[in-house]
Design a protein around this nucleic acid. Structure first.
Length: 469
RNA sequence: GGCGACGUAGCCAAGUGGGAAGGCAGGGGCCUGCAAAGCCCUGAUUCGCGGGUUCGAAUCCCGCCGUCGCCUCCA
């Protein structure tokens, strides 16, 4: 079975073939850094981290590039409101996002270019487009001439006439066509600007990605990713710019993740239902969010509610349960049963790969992991020794790792828990004595009170275990 | 208004022509002093609704209803 990837351009799953054998050139649109990032941004990052990890598992070298848009209208507006320098404001949010990437357990992109560091390439491209007749300058602005691009609209499936009909944009009289978009904007007072053949100015939004790709990955990419909301106009315009400039096909596979939905509603500032990554991580582990993302297909909208969060938490716990050690009193599994476990592990791995090969169907792949967890738990309850459990658990750990989940990681301890630990141990020791003396009422009182305080007790043949919850 | 995606059990969700995965929640049982964890059993005669194609459809076609995204900055 070979890897197949859904391509937004063709609306079909296609066999995955790279431009260069064994190498995947992957560009993912990163955030515009004008405010704190929310869980929707995290979803996109986690989706493409999953894609990257699986490609690497399949043996590819992934040249992963993610940009930061650190100059644009919103950043400038924000900065003017607070009196902060726009570039400094952007820098602050870039650092914060970089920290989120680490906290979310995301493999760092190989390159994280920023607009302000790519001005040379941007100017070079805009100039090239102007020279070829794909762009024209007006009063220091430069616009892309959409009518010159025969297949403009091919990604989003729109035709210029249709866009015109539904367009709600105020028409700029200086533009030749209402859909022409800015490649370069003339500087206005108080804005960051750079020298260019058209005077001082700054880049338009779309050109940055085209230029960064040309610079860091070359004229053609294997995968270009981003949120589904970027299909139009952003990615449509990138195609127009890049293909007009190079004369070559820009991207082989366009991948778009679905949008995260807050309780059935769109997450937006006007609705005031924004959850920042910071907010989420203050309450939950990063892998809980990852589990949510993995639980549904990356192209589907993701429901983000208190209930779906709780379900993801439980699912993660169940997966981790598979990694629990053999029972202390394990007598060993008969040969045939041990062999059966090995077979179940192999079957799980095969099913996992088949699911992931089918356009990164992580939800189905997770299903195979849960199957394996059950098989391991059965073997453990059946008396398997640590050595007998080990190969299957290693498979589980490895495959979960491909999805970016670290099953050996313990849930983070609460504040002050280290100081409390000796006292909890003491209480448990006393409870163990009480249980030995059959003083059930007192023993249960200790357990109940600890539960109220968030300490869960579990009596196992090997002794009493506890954990925070 | 235009373009696109989607609608599967209480919740989340996989499944694109021929057996309705999996997780959470629920019910029964085993284990346990009682729990917890784990294990076993259990749930959609049915896939938004109505037609159609087919020997056969959740899966294909048409219509309707509903949700979401985009058309303006957006992961």
């Amino acid at each position: 079975m070979a890897l197949r990837v859904y391509n937004t351009m063709t609306r079909n799953k296609e066999p995955f073939e790279t431009l260069e054998p064994g190498v995947v050139k992957m560009y993912v649109c990163g955030p515009t850094v004008y405010a704190k990032a929310h869980v929707g941004h995290a979803m996109s990052v986690l989706v493409f981290d999953m894609v990257r990890r699986y490609l690497e598992y399949r043996g590819y070298e992934v040249r992963h590039v993610m940009n930061y848009t650190d100059v644009d209208d919103k950043i400038i507006r924000r900065a003017n409101e607070s009196g902060e320098d726009p570039i400094a404001l952007a820098e602050r949010y870039i650092r914060e996002f970089d920290r989120h990437l680490v906290d979310l357990g995301v493999l760092p992109p190989k390159v994280k270019p920023r607009v302000t560091q790519e001005i040379g390439w941007i100017i070079k491209m805009v100039k090239g487009l102007e020279d070829k007749g794909y762009a024209y300058a007006v009063d220091g602005d430069v616009y892309f001439r959409v009518t010159k691009d025969d297949d403009y609209g091919k990604l989003s499936g729109r035709k210029l006439e249709e866009m015109m009909a539904g367009a709600r944009v105020e028409v700029d009289e200086r533009k030749e066509h209402p859909m022409d978009f800015a490649l370069w904007k003339a500087a206005r007072p108080g804005e960051p600007s750079w020298d260019s053949p058209w005077g001082k100015g700054r880049p338009g939004w779309h050109i940055e990605c085209s230029a960064m790709n040309l610079h860091h990955l070359g004229e053609q990419l294997d995968i270009h990713g981003g949120g589904a909301d970027l299909i139009f106009p952003h990615h449509e315009n990138e195609i127009a710019q890049s293909e007009s400039y190079t004369g070559k096909s820009y991207v082989r596979y366009w991948m778009h993740n679905g949008m995260l939905q807050m309780g059935g509603e769109k997450m937006s500032k006007s609705l005031g239902n924004l959850v920042t990554i910071e907010d989420f991580l203050a309450e939950h582990e990063a892998d809980v969010l990852r589990m949510m993302v993995l639980s549904s297909h990356y192209r589907s909208p993701l429901k983000f509610t208190a209930e779906t969060i709780a379900q993801a938490e439980k699912a993660l716990e169940r997966l981790r349960g598979g990694m629990r050690p053999a029972h202390a009193s394990a007598a060993g599994l008969p040969e045939a049963m041990a062999a059966a476990l090995a077979e179940q592990a192999a079957a799980a791995k095969e099913g996992f790969v088949a699911a992931m090969d089918d356009d990164f169907n992580a939800a189905a792949a997770l299903g195979r992991l849960f199957d394996l967890v059950r098989a391991i738990n059965q073997a453990r309850d059946g008396g398997a020794t640590a050595a007998q459990l080990q190969p299957a658990q290693e498979t589980l750990r490895e495959l979960a790792g491909v999805l970016g989940l670290d099953l050996t990681k313990q849930p983070p301890q609460k504040q002050g828990s280290a100081e409390a630990a000796p006292f909890i141990d003491l209480l448990i020791e006393i409870r163990t004595d009480l249980r030995a003396a059959k003083q059930w009422a007192l023993a249960d009182k200790i357990r109940d009170r600890l539960t109220e305080m968030g300490v869960l007790l579990e009596d196992t043949p090997g002794g009493t275990l506890w954990r925070w919850k």
